[in-house]
Amino acid sequence: MKTLLSFTLAVCFFISTATFAQQQYTVDGKQYTLQTEIEGPLTLLWNTIDGEYRYFSKKGTEILELTNTKVDGKYQEEYKATLQSQTQDANAGDASKVKFTLPSLTSFFVSYNKLKDSNFTYESKSVDIQTRLGAYVGVTNNAYNSNPTNAIVPTLGFDLEILDEVYLRRHSVVLRFKQSFKNPDNNSTSSQLSLNYRFKFVKSEKLDVFINTKFVAYTYAKTEDLVLDSTTGVSTIVSSSGGNLNAPAAFGIGADYAVGNGFITFNYNDIVAVGVENKDDNFPVDFSLGYRFNL
């Protein structure tokens, strides 16, 4: 319980920090909620909007968007000309060498601000924690539980993803709850809370494709079996329940597609599990589809 309380408090802290760091700005007649990354003579603002990274440069009262549009498969890098025009009054470096990423833009803005303001200081961030909360539905044959007839049952659940979008953009940790409904063969149900690691081997503004590794799981199951007494010939229902904590080392694959203030997410879960036994040698069928919100 103490561990769960600590985790909850940490999540609340991250969410509140991200919320208070954002402000409303008007750019070209449109309202944006933006985070302040660098504040000084040249202020760097940014956020993910409709799943796309958007960067803005504020000098005085003027706010310009830093853009990098794609035409015929080639990026136009308009942001470099914008940076060059805004920093002509100081030799902050060659804007043509600046990459369209938060760390590279941050470095350029810091260099300019130090030249323009001798009192400017900046403490580099080691992480920029973000959180995503999602819900999903799916189907599974619970291949790693007893399922002699390979029955497929519905599932639903929730997950909380914690990630660093600056220095560890391809990595995240996911706390996932999954409820499997009744198997008609033995009226079994199961509830599982698991801790997962994801590596995003495809990472773009709209689409992420990842490997999911479930490395710790607590599963609580209830079953009802019809048992025949060979002496009396009478069948009785025997109920059992219990939970176990294991390290399944289960691997799956999934994808997130940016839509609105979040992602449509699809997962093929637990394709291979090294740490648990496939009792009935059923081929794993475990799919889920849901939506994850940026908090």
Rank of each mutant, 00 (worst) to 15 (best):
V139I: 07
S188E: 12
K74H: 12
Y220L: 09
K80D: 08
K182Q: 11
L115I: 15
F7R: 03
Q35Y: 11
L228C: 07
S111L: 14
V234P: 05
Q130H: 10
G138W: 02
V259P: 04
Y167S: 08
I152Q: 00
N150A: 10
Q130D: 11
L289T: 06
K2D: 07
I38G: 07
D28H: 11
Y197R: 00
P248G: 00
L226F: 14
L175D: 01
S191K: 15
S288L: 00
K99M: 11
N91D: 15
G157C: 02
D185Y: 10
Y197G: 00
F158R: 13
S107T: 14
T149P: 02
D256K: 10
K74V: 15
D280G: 14
L163N: 10
E277Q: 15
G290A: 04
E37W: 15
C12Q: 13
F108S: 11
V71M: 08
L5A: 05
S190F: 05
D270G: 01
G93N: 14
T131G: 05
T189Y: 03
F181Q: 00
E165N: 12
A21L: 04
Y75A: 11
F20Y: 12
N246P: 03
S288N: 08
R169P: 06
Q31E: 13
N278G: 07
V127R: 08
V127D: 03
L168N: 05
V227Y: 10
G157W: 09
N212P: 03
T19I: 12
G157A: 04
F181I: 01
H171E: 04
S16G: 09
I211Y: 10
N119H: 14
A249V: 04
A255K: 01
G262Q: 05
Y268P: 00
Q88Y: 05
K116E: 15
T36N: 10
T17Y: 06
S194K: 04
L228R: 13
L105I: 06
R169F: 07
V137I: 15
L160K: 03
I271E: 04
V127H: 08
Q22G: 01
G254Y: 03
N186L: 08
F13R: 01
K59F: 09
E123C: 00
